[in-house]
């Protein structure tokens, strides 16, 4: 199990890396003084440095006094995974097949597998939401959502 201490150190390393990347990326645009004022990289450069320094301090604090209790109970980790994995699947599906089709598959899957609902109710809900979204977004607000090959096939 990941302890709270390890998670603190992990997150602090990520933010430290982020600060470093920002500060390094900023050097490309100049971090000094030009005749027209501070160069474009100046502000992000120092922001990156501040993030880096504060992250390192957080990391030291966690190393010195971090508590070793687990960040997540094992059973909770399972609950989170059961929620997060289908969600990632939904995002990938939405990029491949469009948001409407992905919504249908995602809802049908979670209702059938995790909710243990019957086919009838699962299909009703998982068809209802994308249809409702279509009516609301495309018709009422005229905001098109991401579409995929299926919509192209039926000419939407």
């Amino acid at each position: 199990m990941i302890s709270r201490k390890a998670a603190e150190i992990g997150l602090a390393s990520v933010t430290a890396l982020f600060g470093t990347v920002i500060a390094y990326g900023a050097t490309e645009f100049g971090v000094g003084w030009a005749p027209s004022g501070p160069e474009p990289g100046t502000f992000p450069f120092y922001i990156g440095l501040i993030v880096l320094v504060a992250s390192l301090a957080n990391m030291v604090a966690a190393l010195v006094a971090g508590d070793g209790t687990p960040l997540l109970e094992r059973s909770h980790l399972k609950d989170v995974a059961r929620f997060v994995v289908p969600m990632i699947g939904f995002v990938i599906l939405a990029l491949l097949l469009g948001i409407y089709v992905a919504t249908f598959v995602y809802l049908l899957g979670t209702m059938r597998v995790q909710g243990r609902y019957g086919w009838g109710r699962s299909i009703a809900v998982s068809l209802g939401l994308p249809l409702g979204l279509y009516a609301l977004m495309e018709k009422a607000f005229q905001v098109p959502l991401l579409k995929g090959p299926l919509e192209a096939l039926i000419g939407l």
Binding site: T15, F18, G25, F29, S36, G41, P44, G48
Partner: peptide, 29 residues
């Protein structure tokens, strides 16, 4: 220090893209 990190990340994210003063594209890697 966690608040400082949070604020700094916000500023850094805001800086990505077009710089409103010089017009240069920053931190797009």
């Amino acid at each position: 220090l966690k608040t400082v990190v949070s604020i700094g990340c916000g500023f850094a994210l805001a800086a990505v893209g077009m710089d409103s003063v010089s017009g240069s594209l920053r931190l797009t890697f």
